[in-house]
Design a binder for these strands. Structure first.
Length: 706
DNA sequence: GTCAGTACTTAGTATCCGCACG
DNA sequence: CGTGCGGATACTAAGTACTGAC
């Protein structure tokens, strides 16, 4: 109650929020605290309404638990969902009842965000409100605009969750007996367990992974664990193992798959579709939502990125007894495959995952969660950009502050300030500590070591240049030479004094110290918000700068891509140049040349048509001139389009735009840009992206400002 | 402050699949 | 009507952030 008091005062019309706030967490279960609604909604009402609603949703009587202990949990949910639409107008009546006495930052923050949501909401709400139940019925056809509804505010992620559990990897199918494995030149029949692991290796034989020492060592060690004692004593040297028949067999198999008839392919497709329909969706709070990764990761050999010390280790097969199911108490929980049991079925509505298991390589937990188009992901995404926009409002203050801190007497503060400067200026990642030897040696800002930077008092005519060279996330190299302010430079010299190359540059700093500091500067601020903020603000600026009114659509899109690219470069989003890059560039060039020829032909024709018309002066020849003119124009346009495409592709050779588009750029900036220039959103976002950003597409208008 | 554990976002690449092209 | 290309999607690794115990 206290938490949200502050909100109450300012938000008289936020009744729904209040409802949510009533269901607080205490002693491990939900407690219904001061609830004015109990006055209007008797338990019977609630049950009745709930019944009706479920009937509409599922078409058959629901399974309703009647145990009292379920009740407090249960009814609020239904009460709330049904009520939503209704109570809008009697809001004010309830207000006075809520007396909040204290506030905290989180409450404030949410409030502010909720405020914004509400403004938008006000616009559309009226129409939808009318038909509460019908809406639920129609829902599958009609897209649900979750962004027009209130959000949970107290850490509850859902009230109802039902799903079918995961899809397990298909069981191992032994290779036919004529496919032999040879040890030391002699054929050898392997036990199914050992054989399965051998096939994992055989499938990767073409990959350069299998030539790496660590990979081979890890693989062999784990493989031996799967062998029978007999096999173990025989097979002692990986070099003497010959997997080539297996490898050939799998290659043949994949060829065969490609060569399958249409019918067979269709059949497989249909089967996949069936599985998707059955397992690919869940019901969360009365809405059917798509699950992102409902298939359990199949066993195989671990492929880390970069120089990973664990590459080649066996990634174990996941069994039902490894699986934790999360769903609501009042849902029909998924059944484990016959003869098996789940590790646990829990009902934790403070988390968003449906299924989890512990992976055996790093011992970390993996989750099955919802699709980016789902409410639960979308809300979070939206909130992320709202936080970044709040940073926009106070970034000047924060910048002034860290510049001031460069002069601090305290080393830890100077380090903090310089690190923050890098994070802000260069969009570096925070750089959590990692366990040595468990993962590839990569760093972020706070974990930079002395060996990762070089200082040049003067370089290429610039003063105080810092050269960064290190491996970041996914072992992608970050290389950059940047001139910095004198104070930063001097500080860096100081930090590096008397240190070995492999000592931490910021020895008095880590991400948790930094984030704690940031939290004090702005509610909800963490290091990664700077990346989001700088990416989005850069896009907005670049779009403003690069777009010119008189360009045609392809040229505008090139401008968009260039703006996008500026961000990708800032965030260091790289990719391996596609294998087919050179070739496809050539193809494009050929096309361009052909188009050029075509254009000059068309121009020539136009000329002669004109000459002809001059002499003849009849209608027909005039018309011919017009036609030719149009043809020339059209070809010119096509040529332009191709040239633009070529430029775009060339500039994109080693830069990946997708990551920033998907994770860093406030989609409303792009949507606004599209609207402003009359560009169809489809040119910017493909189908998946449009689903993910449905909220932004729906709510942003052309004058949206990040 | 350190550490382990948990939840969730961000990331590059492998594979799939539909469509333009010959 | 087959084929090859390139965008879309699937996959899962690798980050960030936060919590709570000590």
């Amino acid at each position: 109650k206290d938490k949200y008091k502050d909100k109450e005062h300012k938000h008289k019309d936020h009744k729904k929020d209040k409802e949510r706030e009533k269901f607080k967490h205490g002693n491990g279960y939900l407690v219904l605290s001061d609830s004015p609604h109990l006055e209007i909604w008797s338990r019977r009402d609630v049950l009745e309404a709930m019944f009706l609603f479920l009937l509409v949703l599922f078409g058959s009587p629901p399974h309703v638990k009647s145990e009292p202990e379920d009740d407090f949990y249960h009814s609020p949910k239904q009460e709330k969902s049904l009520k939503r639409e209704r109570d809008d107008d009697n809001d004010s009546e309830f207000k006075p009842k809520k007396i909040k006495t204290e506030n905290d930052k989180k409450g404030k923050k949410r409030k502010r965000e909720a405020e914004e949501i509400n403004q938008k909401k006000a616009k559309n709400k009226k129409g939808e409100v009318a038909d509460g139940k019908k809406k639920a019925k129609k829902e599958p056809e009609e897209k649900w605009k979750w962004w027009e509804e209130e959000r949970y505010t107290d850490g509850v992620k859902w009230k109802f969750l039902e799903h079918k559990g995961p899809v397990f990897a298909p069981p191992y199918e032994p290779v036919p007996s004529h496919v032999k494995f040879y040890y030391d030149g002699k054929p050898m029949k392997l036990s199914p367990q050992a054989e399965e692991v051998a096939t994992f290796f055989a499938k990767m034989l073409d990959h350069e992974y299998t030539t790496k020492d660590i990979f081979r060592k890890n693989f062999f060690k784990d493989w031996r664990k799967e062998m029978t004692s007999e096999e173990k004593s025989k097979i002692t040297d990986l070099k003497k193992c010959n997997f080539s028949e297996m490898s050939e067999y799998f290659k043949a198999q994949s060829e065969a798959r490609k060569a399958m008839s249409k019918e067979e392919k269709l059949k497989i497709k249909e089967e996949n579709e069936r599985i998707l329909q059955e397992y690919g969706f869940c019901i969360m709070d009365k809405h059917k939502e798509r699950i992102a990764n409902f298939r359990i990761e199949p066993p195989g050999l671990f492929r880390g990125r970069g120089d990973h010390p664990k590459m080649g280790m066996l990634k174990r097969r996941i069994r039902p007894q490894d699986i934790i199911i999360n769903c609501s108490k009042d849902s029909k929980h998924p059944e484990p495959p016959p003869g098996t049991k789940w590790k646990e079925v829990r009902h934790d509505n403070k988390v968003t995952w449906l299924v989890s298991w512990t992976e055996n390589i790093q011992g970390s937990i993996k989750y099955i969660m919802l699709n980016p188009s789902s409410r639960i992901k979308g809300e979070k995404d939206w909130q992320k950009y709202e936080t970044a926009r709040r940073l926009k409002k106070c970034v000047d203050r924060i910048r002034a502050q860290y510049r001031e801190d460069w002069k601090s007497k305290e080393m830890r503060i100077r380090q903090r300030a310089v690190a923050l400067y890098f994070i802000d200026k260069l969009a570096l990642r925070a750089g959590n500590e990692k366990e040595e030897g468990e993962t590839a040696d990569t760093v972020g800002c706070c974990s930079l070591r002395v060996e990762h930077i070089k200082l040049y008092p003067e370089n290429d005519g610039q003063e105080y240049v810092v050269e960064f060279d290190f491996l970041g996330k996914d072992s992608i190299r970050y290389y950059n030479k940047v001139p910095v302010e004198k104070r930063v430079f001097k500080n860096l010299q100081l930090f590096m004094e008397n240190k070995e190359p492999d000592d931490d540059l910021f020895d008095r700093l880590n991400t948790s110290i930094l984030n704690k500091h940031l939290q004090e500067l702005m509610d909800g601020l963490t290091a990664k918000v700077f990346r989001t903020y700088n990416a989005s603000i850069t896009l907005q600026q670049q779009l403003k700068e690069l777009t010119t009114a008189d360009e045609n659509i392809p040229a505008k899109i090139l401008s968009y891509n260039r703006a996008n690219r500026a961000v990708a470069i800032l965030c260091n989003h790289q990719r391996a140049p596609p294998k087919t890059f050179e070739k496809s560039m050539q193809n494009l060039q050929t096309k361009i040349d052909a188009k050029r020829d075509q254009l000059s032909d068309a121009k020539r024709e136009l000329k002669s048509a004109k000459a002809d018309a001059k002499v003849r002066k009849d209608e027909k020849s005039k018309k011919a001139v017009e036609t030719k003119k149009k043809a020339v124009q059209r070809i010119e346009e096509q040529l332009m389009k191709l040239e633009v495409q070529a430029t775009d592709r060339e500039e994109n050779k080693q830069i990946a735009l997708g990551t920033s588009k998907l994770n860093y750029l406030d989609p409303r900036i792009s949507v606004a840009w599209c609207k402003k220039w009359g560009i169809p959103v489809e040119k910017i976002y493909n189908k998946t992206q449009r689903e993910k950003f449905a909220w932004a597409i729906d709510m942003a208008d052309e004058d949206y400002e990040f």
